[in-house]
């Protein structure tokens, strides 16, 4: 569904993304992990078509910057961005018109209700708290019923109810056959959710692992992350712990 082929992005002399390739299948959730400056944000923005890059990105077979491709991609930014002079409800209406959606009213109400924004539907964009802004961005991203959904650090700032709803939403979308790419720092938040993980560091893909494979090796996502990024093996970790506590620790 989503194919990233040999994408390279330079900012002046810095190489933000270096020959990154991966393919995501429909009906799957992929977790994009990596330390700061790994290039996660850059690759996401490249997929949605904000940036110029070398290489190719295909969405549903189409090049990612075409209107056809953009029609099926949904994007939820890391930092919520709303219009100060439109209300919650008006934001949804505005987006529906920009996407030329038909028959969206029921979906709009359902989304707003699900993320508890219905009673705030007449508040202006700049009157919302940060969490509510994020939820609205989420609703906006999901309104056009996209096939490929990019979520940049979606859990930060959400209250527990919203996190729960988001997780169940992600699960539902997965079952419906959509492709999701979730980028995050907090590994715990996406445990249980993912089918594939792509771990980046220094602009390169260091690991591209399916869940079954990881389960087969009996590793946790966290362990894999540190192994890949810091070269820590599980045995090293145990040794680390022993040093710190000064006692023999069970592995």
């Amino acid at each position: 569904m989503l194919e990233v082929r040999h994408v390279t992005k330079r900012y002046g002399k810095t190489l933000a993304v270096d020959d990154v390739s991966f393919t995501l299948d429909p009906g799957s959730v992929t977790v994009l992990l990596g330390p700061n400056g790994a290039g996660k944000s850059t690759i996401m923005k490249s997929i949605i078509g904000f940036l110029k890059f070398d290489g190719e990105i295909l969405v549903g077979g189409e090049e990612n910057k075409t209107p056809q491709a953009r029609r099926i991609i949904g994007y939820v930014p890391e930092i919520p961005a709303l219009y100060p002079n439109l209300t919650v409800s008006e934001h949804m209406e505005f987006l529906a018109r920009a996407y030329r959606l038909t028959d969206y009213s029921a979906r709009k109400e359902a989304l707003l209700a699900r993320f508890e924004l219905s009673e705030h539907s007449r508040k202006f964009g700049d009157e919302l708290s940060k969490g509510m802004q994020q939820k609205l961005n989420l609703c906006l991203g999901l309104l056009p019923e996209p096939q490929v959904i990019l979520l940049d650090e979606p859990m930060i700032g959400l209250d527990p109810h919203a996190i729960k709803e988001l997780r169940s939403t992600i699960e539902e979308l997965r079952v419906q056959g959509r492709t999701l790419l979730v980028s995050t720092h907090i590994i715990d938040s996406v445990d249980m959710l993912w089918d594939r993980t792509v771990i980046m560091q220094g602009g390169k893909v260091k690991a591209n692992v399916l869940r079954e494979e990881l389960d087969a090796q009996n590793k946790s996502l966290e362990q894999l992350f540190f192994e890949v990024t810091e070269g820590l093996k599980p045995e090293d970790e145990a040794a680390d712990k022993t040093e710190k506590t000064g006692e023999g620790a069970e592995v």
Binding site: I48, G49, F50, P67, Q68, R70, R71, I73, G74, Y75, P77, I79, A81, L82, Y83, H91, F94, L95, A98, Y99, G125, N137, L140
Partner: peptide
């Protein structure tokens, strides 16, 4: 452009 233009409109199928 406003930040909302970026996240809402740049990502949309509008030219």
């Amino acid at each position: 452009f406003l930040p909302a233009d970026v996240s809402l409109l740049f990502a949309s199928p509008l030219r």
